[in-house]
Simulated assay, not measured.
Amino acid sequence: MANKIRVGIIGTGGWARYGHIPTLQALDAFEVVALSGRNLAKVRGYADEFGIAHAFDDAEQLINHPEVDLVVVLAPTPEHGRLSKKVVEAGKDVYSEWPLSTNTAESERVLALAQTEGVTHVVGLQRRFSPSSRYWHDLVRQGYVGKLRAVRMSVGVEAFSAVMPEAARWAVDPDNFTHLLPVYGGHFFDMLFHGLEFPEKLVSLSQNQLPVTTIKETGEQIPYAAANEVLVIGTFPSGGTFTLQLEGGQRHPTGLQIEITGTDGVLRILNPRGFQNVDDGQVYGMKDGATAFVELPVPGRYNSLPVTHLDASAQDVAYLYDAYARSKTKGDSDVTTFEDALRMHRLLDRVVESSAANER
């Protein structure tokens, strides 16, 4: 492209290095021109490694730099809302990692500001963009399962375990909204319900089975109040039902498992990991009187970008960035926006409120 979208990234954690920088550098529509972070030496090291022109230890310098068109906010969650508002106030497009902020009220304010200023806003709910997700979404819409009857999804991950690194200490505070339900619930609920329907009714239960976390480097033990087991059951507007289970801190991760049953067929989606997936999910189906699942390979048209050398989790981000680029040129893409983020915040509020009511 003669006119690339020039990107500035705030935050130099592992997700920037693993997911965003390699993805953007593999896409012709983008050029990463600036990085910022708290440790200037680290930022400069990243900039040198990846050939990025500008390095800052002040996020506002990056936001206001004239060569930056799109600002990507990858700082810790408590900074997402504040920094996103700074970007919007500067009149620039903004991509915020999910969650958009630490609470629904703040996310409402961020969205309202973005709408007032008329900037393009993107939230990092990228799981719905994986080739396997887009494929099974299409199968459902094309009638593979018929009328929806029931959905069962479980997500089991190592994250949020009884031992956590010092760098993750900040996430132990539930007020920072970086625990099992908002992180894995937000991503996988969005992917699931985008492919089916949004819930009508739900009830939930949650449990904290690991109430103490040990800091790996020091052995210090600190209280951990967030739930690491979450169960949600409910109904869809069409009458179908769903059962969802999230489990964090697994010693033997079970990954992603989904079954979708209908009047005409069944779909099964599997992935051995919840995140940092080397390979995309596998899709299986059973219909027309069959008694065993058969694999339904993802057609090549769902892998349309030159990013197959990256892990599947990074490829998901690539398809989200591609949707953003198309929104700028064609105005008709399905990019996930701050509206999607707010909808997810409100859904998670319902889950928390139901769980609290059941505890009472």
Rank of each mutant, 00 (worst) to 15 (best):
I5W: 08
R6M: 06
R6D: 04
G8V: 09
R17D: 00
G19T: 08
H20N: 01
I21C: 03
P22C: 07
L24Y: 06
F30I: 07
L35E: 08
A41D: 12
A41C: 04
V43P: 15
G45M: 00
F50Q: 10
G51M: 00
I52V: 14
H54C: 11
A55I: 13
F56K: 05
E67A: 15
P78L: 11
G81W: 06
K85W: 11
K85G: 15
K86S: 15
D93W: 04
S96R: 14
W98L: 03
N103G: 10
T104W: 05
A105M: 14
T116D: 08
T116C: 12
G118N: 11
T120W: 12
R128I: 01
P131D: 01
Y135L: 14
K147L: 02
R149V: 01
G156R: 00
A167S: 12
A168N: 10
N176R: 08
F177N: 09
T178D: 13
V183F: 10
G185D: 00
G185W: 00
D190G: 08
H194K: 07
H194W: 03
H194Y: 05
L196P: 02
L196Q: 01
P199N: 09
E200T: 01
N208L: 01
Q209G: 12
Q209W: 01
G219T: 12
P223H: 05
Y224C: 15
Y224G: 13
E229L: 08
I233V: 09
P237K: 06
G239C: 12
T241A: 12
T243K: 09
Q245L: 10
G255I: 09
I260M: 09
T263N: 14
G265T: 11
G265P: 13
I269W: 02
N271C: 10
N271F: 01
P272V: 00
R273V: 11
D279N: 13
G281C: 05
Y284V: 01
M286E: 14
P306W: 00
H309Q: 06
L310D: 15
Q315L: 04
D316E: 06
D322L: 12
D322F: 12
A323V: 01
R326L: 15
K328T: 05
K328M: 08
E339M: 12
L342E: 07
H345G: 12
L347Q: 02
V352A: 04
E353F: 04
S355V: 01
A356V: 14
A357T: 02
